[in-house]
């Protein structure tokens, strides 16, 4: 009897621990933590804390395309393999954090500068800050206080903030970016005259799924309307095609919410940095007919 009770107690403790772990995994990040990336490829070997990178500040100032295409940062955390020498040579973080670039009338501090190593460790800790009490130069609440509110993620509607010109993300970096025509100048893209993929693409449920919804007395969610126009402003073309979305032909790929929640297709950005998947109504917007 005692043994049975003991086993029962053990089972309860183990399942409780497992439950706690699951809950911990599902914990939503705080608004200022959403999009945070910790980079720890080489830092600890060099005797420094891992780098903490906040997307919210950088996305307010630069487009995703500038950093993930022109500067070459990988879309997967830790996959870029940034070294201090890369930064010193003016690549990756060093492309902007060079002690020369001006942003918001301020000089952008130098990352991994050659002199810094021997003279100013305090500057290293501005990025190599995991587990350290470092006072950030920009306070999240102060920085975002006038921005339109979003329901999830950073609690900011970044798209509207851009539309309202509260933020003006830079898409060109001298010496790094290539001068090219703005997509907005290509009227044929918007009008769909020469282009097969129109700016708005509808991702619909299959007929069977829709019927199953109705059979269960539900309408189900509206179909998704995907706007190329909105995404191109931030991402350009090559950030998404073909690595994330490999098919051009409508309906060639099937997208499921399970895959998306696992970080595939839309989930590459919308589980990490862009507004999260909990915000259903921002994508499922086509009126049900």
């Amino acid at each position: 009897m005692k043994r049975a009770l003991l086993l029962l107690l053990l089972a309860c403790v183990l399942s409780g621990a497992a439950f706690a772990q699951t809950v911990a995994k599902k914990k939503q990040p705080l608004p200022y933590e959403y999009g945070r990336v910790v980079i720890h490829n080489f830092s600890e070997k060099a005797g420094l804390a891992p780098v903490v990178f906040d997307h919210w500040l950088h996305r307010a100032k630069f487009t995703c395309r500038l950093c993930h295409v022109d500067i070459g940062f990988s879309m997967k955390a830790g996959a870029t393999g940034i070294k201090a020498s890369d930064n010193m040579n003016g690549y990756y973080c060093g492309a902007c954090h060079n002690g020369k670039m001006i942003s918001d009338t301020k000089k952008v501090f130098e990352s991994c500068g050659k002199l810094m190593i021997s003279q100013d460790w305090a500057n290293c800790f501005r990025c190599h800050s995991l587990g350290k009490k470092v006072k950030p130069e920009y306070d999240f609440n102060h920085f975002t206080k006038n921005f339109p509110k979003g329901r999830f993620g950073n609690g900011v509607d970044w798209e509207k903030a851009k539309k309202d010109r509260l933020i003006r993300p830079v898409d060109f970096l001298e010496g790094i970016s290539i001068q090219r025509k703005s997509i907005s100048e290509q009227k044929d893209f918007g009008q769909g005259a020469k282009v097969e993929g129109r700016p708005d693409v509808v991702f619909g449920y299959t007929m069977e799924t829709r019927q199953a919804f109705r059979g269960a007395g539900m309408e189900g969610r509206p179909d998704v309307i995907f706007s190329h126009e909105k995404h191109i402003v931030w991402n350009g073309c090559e950030l998404c095609h073909p690595k994330i979305f490999k098919d051009v032909k409508k309906g060639a790929s099937k997208y499921t919410m399970v895959d998306i929640f696992e970080g595939k297709s839309c989930g590459v950005c919308h589980t990490t940095v862009a507004f999260p998947l909990l915000d259903c109504q921002r994508c499922h917007i086509k009126p049900i007919q």
Partner: peptide
């Protein structure tokens, strides 16, 4: 450093044309 950055950029560019 240059190789790492520009090989990735070139690959993205090529992949898009190929796509």
């Amino acid at each position: 450093s240059q190789k790492k950055v520009y090989l990735k950029r070139l690959q993205m560019c090529r992949d898009l044309y190929f796509f």
